[in-house]
Design a binder for these strands. Structure first.
Lengths: 149, 149
DNA sequence: CGAACTGGTTCTAAAATAGGACTAGACAGC
DNA sequence: GCTGTCTAGTCCTATTTTAGAACCAGTTCG
C-alpha cells in the first residue's frame, strides 16, 4: 500500500523524515556537500537508477533543498546546487556520519573521516545549554505544542 | 527489486542510513527517547502496522539499538529499551527535529519544541573546532580512507 | 556530418508496505 | 477455574515503490 506520510504530523522529527528520510535523498545531499552538481555525477557516484534520481531530485527541488542553475562550465546543461535550506541539513549529515563512524565499522576497517580546514579531525556535535554545558538525552524534554513566532 | 543496501559502503553516512534510515526506525527511536517501552505503546502512538513494527523492532535489536528486557511492572511481558548505541542516536534525532522546526512549519502552525530541564528552549547543535568556534559546511572536508584505531 | 555524451522517460519484475484477519498466552473479575 | 479481554504478535493480500534495463532527444566533440 501507499507509504504513510507524516507531512502534516505535529512532530518536527516526523515531518523531517517525511521530507528527506528515505534511502537516497540524504546521500544526494551528502554528495552535494562534497561538491557534486551534475545529474550524471550523482548517478555515477551513487549507482542509483536514473529514474530514481530524477524523482528524488525533483522532490528535493520542490522542498527547496536543491535548486537548478545553469551549468558553471558554460554548456547548455543544468546543475543542481544546495540552497540555504539544503545547507541547513549539514548537522543531520554530520550526526549520521558520526554515529556511523562510532558504531558501524569493525576495528581495522577503513572508513572516511571528517576534518577541518587545518586537517584536524573534528569533534562531536554538541547541544549547548545556557550554561555552556552540553546537554544529553536525559537533560531535555519535549513540550507538546507551541505557536510559531 | 530488492532495495540496494549500503551496509558495506565506505562512507559512514551511507552505512548509518542503511541501518536506521527508513521511515519508521527513527520514529520508534524518538518514541523510545520519549519514554515508550511497550509494543502496544509504539503501535498505538505511531499508527504503524503490527507486522511493520515487529520487523523494525527486530532489526533495531539486531543492530544493538534496542534491547528486550522484562517488563518493569512485574508482568510477564517484555519491554524494548534503548541501549548505549541507541542513546547515541540522540544527535540525529535532534538535528532532524531542529531542521524540521526551522523549515517545515508555516507561521502560526502549532509544533512541539525541545526544552532543557529548566524549561528553557535549547540552542542549535554545533560542531566545535579546536578553537571553540563552531564549524559550518564550508569549514570541513572528508578524508577518504583511514584505519580505525 | 556522424559519434558519443548528457539527461532524462518508459517499461517490467521483484520487493516493501499497509492494513485487516487471525491467534496464543497472560491477566482480571467473579 | 471459567470467561472475557488485553498483549503481542503472525499471516495474508492488494497496492505501491524500487531497481534496472531499454529507449530517446538534444548537445557537444572530432
Amino acid at each position: 500500500m501507499k507509504r504513510t506520510g507524516f507531512a502534516k504530523a505535529e512532530c518536527p522529527v516526523a515531518r523531517a523524515l517525511d521530507a528527506i528520510g528515505d534511502w537516497w535523498s540524504l546521500l544526494i545531499v551528502r554528495d552535494a556537500f562534497d561538491g557534486l552538481r551534475r545529474f550524471g555525477d550523482f548517478q555515477k557516484n551513487l549507482g542509483i537508477a536514473k529514474g530514481m534520481l530524477t524523482t528524488r531530485l525533483r522532490t528535493l527541488i520542490e522542498l527547496g533543498v536543491l535548486e537548478q542553475v545553469a551549468a558553471s562550465d558554460g554548456s547548455a546543461y543544468q546543475e543542481y546546487v544546495l540552497t540555504r535550506r539544503g545547507h541547513d541539513l549539514f548537522p543531520i549529515v554530520v550526526s549520521l556520519r558520526q554515529w556511523g563512524e562510532a558504531h558501524l565499522y569493525a576495528r581495522g576497517e577503513p572508513h572516511s573521516v571528517l576534518l577541518d580546514q587545518a586537517g584536524q579531525a573534528v569533534g562531536q556535535l554538541v547541544l549547548p545549554s545556557k550554561s555552556g554545558k552540553p546537554l544529553g538525552w536525559a537533560d531535555t524534554k519535549v513540550r507538546k505544542v507551541a505557536r510559531r513566532r
